[in-house]
Design a protein around this nucleic acid. Sequence first.
RNA 1: GCCGUUGUGGUGGAAUAGGUAGACACCCGUGACUUAAAAUCACGUUCCUUCGGGAGUACCGGUUCGAGUCCGGUCAGCGGCACCA
Length: 803
Amino acid sequence: MKYDFTAIEAKWQKRWLEQSLYKAETGGEKEKFYALIEFPFPSGVGLHVGHARPYTAMDVIARKKRMEGYNVLFPMGYDAFGLPTENYAIKNHIHPRTVTERNVGTFRSQLQALGYSFDWDREVNTTDPSFFKWTQWIFLQMFKRGLAYKAKMPVNWCTSCKCVLANEEVVEGVCERCGSPVVRKERSQWMLGITKYADRLIDDLEGLDYPERVKTQQINWIGRSYGAQVRFGTTLGDDITVFTTRPDTLFGATYMVLSPEHALVQQWMPHLENADEIKAYQALAAAKSDMERTELSKEKTGVCLKGVMGINPVNGKEIPIFISDYVLATYGTGAIMAVPAHDTRDWEFAKKFGLPIVEVIAGGDVEQAAFTDVTTGTLVNSGFLDGMSVAQAKKAIVAWLEEKGIGEAKKNFKLRDWVFSRQRYWGEPIPVVHCEKCGTVALPESELPLLLPDVESYELTDDGESPLASITDWVNTTCPCCGGPARRETDTMPQWAGSSWYYLRYMDPHNDQALASPEALKYWSPVDWYNGGMEHTTLHLLYSRFWHKFLYDLGVVPTKEPYAKRTSHGMILGEGGIKMSKSRGNVINPTDVIREFGADTMRTYIMFIGDFEKPASWASNSVKGCKRFLDKVWSLAESVEDRETQYSKANENMMHKTIRKVSSDIEQLKANTALAQLMTLVNQMGEKGCNRAELKTLLQLLSPFAPHMADELWEQKGFEGICSVSAWPAYDEAKCKDAELTIAVQINGKTKGTVQAPADLEREALAQLVQADERIQKAIARVGTNVVKTIVVPNKLVNLIVK
RNA sequence: GCCGUUGUGGUGGAAUAGGUAGACACCCGUGACUUAAAAUCACGUUCCUUCGGGAGUACCGGUUCGAGUCCGGUCAGCGGCACCA
């Protein structure tokens, strides 16, 4: 019979679905295994090969775990709120819900065409009211505990999306999504207090099975640093509080810098001699976009505040105060003490403005460059700190500051609170109302979900208001508190909201009493293995860890951390290692590959392509190689006619070795070498034959990669049940051993040849066997006469040192 | 600049713990089958070679009987952060 993959794949996909073959049951005897992949945003272009790599990898793992007897939860859903859908809807005058439904339909059928073993009864969609009811519920819990709050502050404003962005969404000063410039705007926004969890988000990483680079990237993003907060007096009476990680250099502080936005600047304005100059500088700084700030980072600028001086608390010296945009309003206190001798930025600024540079740590040449080494120097010109090391001086000065009441030890973070509101239509409505009498009031939980109003138009407004603001029927409501007139919040949540907790919903997706039942949460938590992209390390991964910890504090979830293990896949690039993009025309559509070669070939190739964690480039030629391999398996299977139940002598050793290698390689995400081993096995079977017992094992080992073919051949050959839910084959360690081995022979460390030897030969015997070999003797003679030393690695190698 | 990461044939990539570098594929070449092509099968395929061998895992050096693997330095690519005091 011909290998008609189109018919076979359709047949089995239908059967798996009808039988709910991969359904996960909450509870039971089996050990649970929760395998998770990042759910896709259902875009209009459909699934691309970038999805297929992580999805196939986790499907292989889920399938193998299932065959090993685990109760596997492997779910899928759609992260369907978001700007691209809304923009498409606006452009084409369709409702975003319609667009979403259509795109989800495409994605679902593409996912099914790839033969993934999802439990389709647990599918979720973030735009489904029964789902976002609970997104809103979690928000309300945060609001009630002061973790969601409204604040007027400078925010990132995307000039094209006409919408605010979280810090995490700004990449190199432009919008992460559309690449348009981002500017700063003063706006009242909903914020989530992620900084309250900063310490725990760092500390709880310990013990998690995450790649080291993911951990360090999160740690760096959160940016915890230890130092001191110090109050400097001024000649106008008000104190300036600064944060510094180098309190040991306090004696070297020769001037101060405030950020242009600092409140004291406004307050002092009437007393300042150069107010016009200062205002001009403030205006200039405010007009700069983030990108411009970055670009202009080389040359320091600033203005001295004339009419006020700071007072260094350690020596009482009066020092000038500047404003400069190299000091950020949003970090620390928005003000610094400048120590030009030991800070590169301060040094540059001091050189430009001719300010004194006072060395307080000996060890460098502070006229040439700032000396920033904290490990070697000794304190000088620093009164009671003189002679101490940096570490000693830090302790001593902090103790001194605390004693005098002018400063204290302090810890700071780069992480900012999460700007959580978006001025767009296609997102979860924020479930609060604004009442003149009662202020901002939470909607009662009984009124959830708060649905989006169905409207004709959700065009953007130019004044930066959400499209919802113009829908007066919906906006005007009554206050749940006093019954008086009130207005609904018109901003919606960002796309990251639904994905911050979706993995919990999979555990119990149809529950209408809670986001998931306590039993289901207890049974399935935590996610055992979560694979996703590196690009989500400081976005989704950080956000969802934060929400999870909040839910843990509420007593909703039973674990501190959502994901026990995290892995990351490399990107799939186009032919020749170039990024796939529409404009280059090198985008590979999985559907085309499936049509031409079949899903099993697509799956096998995407797993064979290379190291899973590294980027890999698509090679159409190599796809053919994988098709050839599956064709070989097909014809090999067809040729098997016997009724053997034992492995043949010729193949036994190879069978056991293959089971061992495939089993462990899958577990380590090394599907490429697992497949290489299977290819080697099939090549050997081509020579030495394949009996029924061997075929059975081969199909089982192949099943995670090419499940359609495995199930089909299994059925055709009359094996019992269904291959993809049969019991994973076992191997015998003893039978993995070779009877005879190839021993490498080196002379003076260089490999000169090989010798066949029985396994487990004694060192002495092996050395003698090697030296008895004629070719080896010749090789020895070429180098010298005497074997002065022999190094033997049993079963591996003999190295002869010849003089 | 800082943090992380990677450099292996014409290509994708293999090589637990230092122990035969190039598994498994792709491409290419030769042959078989065919009227022919495709497909399939067989053989070859790191480079140099006076056919004895020699060189070789980005580059320079070190440790070792032995280094793709460990250590020091240099160069290049990729990802992240980017005035975080």
